[in-house]
Amino acid sequence: MSYSDNINNSNKNFNYCHGCGLCTLVCPAWQQQKDVRVSPQGHAKALQYGGKIKAEALFSCILCGACSAICPENIDLTTMLLDLRQQSEKTPAQQTIENDLLQLIKLKHEQKFSQPPINKTVFLPGPELRSNQSYLSHIMQLLNNRYDIAIAGDDGYDISMALEAGVEIPAHRLDSFLQPIRFSIKLIVSDGLLIQKLHHWLPYTKINSTGYELSQLPQIREHIKDSDFYVIESRAYHCNFEKNVSHYDKLQREQFCQFNLDLNRLAIPTGAVSNEKLRTAECFNTTKQAEWMLSNKQFARIIVEDMKDLALLSKISDKPVLHLAELN
């Protein structure tokens, strides 16, 4: 087995699965349902045997990426899961989401965005940060200390939503999204799922998550305390696993905080970033998942990288929950 050597660019598909079960072990969807049919192992083996995978099983998955990071065969399981979503027979509710998304994609394609300058680091903050101007401007300020930074007009959230919903993205929309950022020096992206695909689409561009970048800044790091429970955004973390493991391990050694990492050093997700409208409530329960993440952990406050984790954890924890950017 291997931690995927870096970014999972493997061409291996489900055919290569030999059923070791590691992806099942670490899969939050499996952990909740204890039914191998919701895990990548279940999908891969079923496909090998000519079986069909039910949409309900596919959409139980929160696309956290842990399975891809641990697969000893280095199968790009996230891509497999996204492809299967595209091929699956959608429920009426999912069909409605698909239609709405196609509308949104059309709108986004027609919208004229300002072009970020070529030789800059470009920040794709995502809709949650955009709708919270105070956080956004503060993060921009922080990142400006380190980079010559510009904010992207288009951060492709419609594309990310389409990926998650299993909606095929029209080539012209993908082009209109990628064209302005194709020659950027570096991208800082909040959406973990998008990061995973951007690694494939723009293989020569440096891409980091917002959490990774903020947690690099000394003025943020120094405020992380040993009594903090730090929640890493799992999608971004797993898609560049090797690098992220070292980064957060170093942070742990310096600041002594706890992380939402399991014994494999995979990030335990809350699932808050996933689109719950795509699944039925019984499939995956984010509150239950977040409670498990925190269970029997001793800490004074929670630090999060993602705005949706901020919202969810603020609801269920009686301890203060802060976004990383608030540490400075």
Partner: peptide, 11 residues
């Protein structure tokens, strides 16, 4: 569970 895909998981 009798479908072929699921049985195949345990082959």
């Amino acid at each position: 569970i009798e479908d072929r895909g699921t049985r195949g998981i345990y082959s």
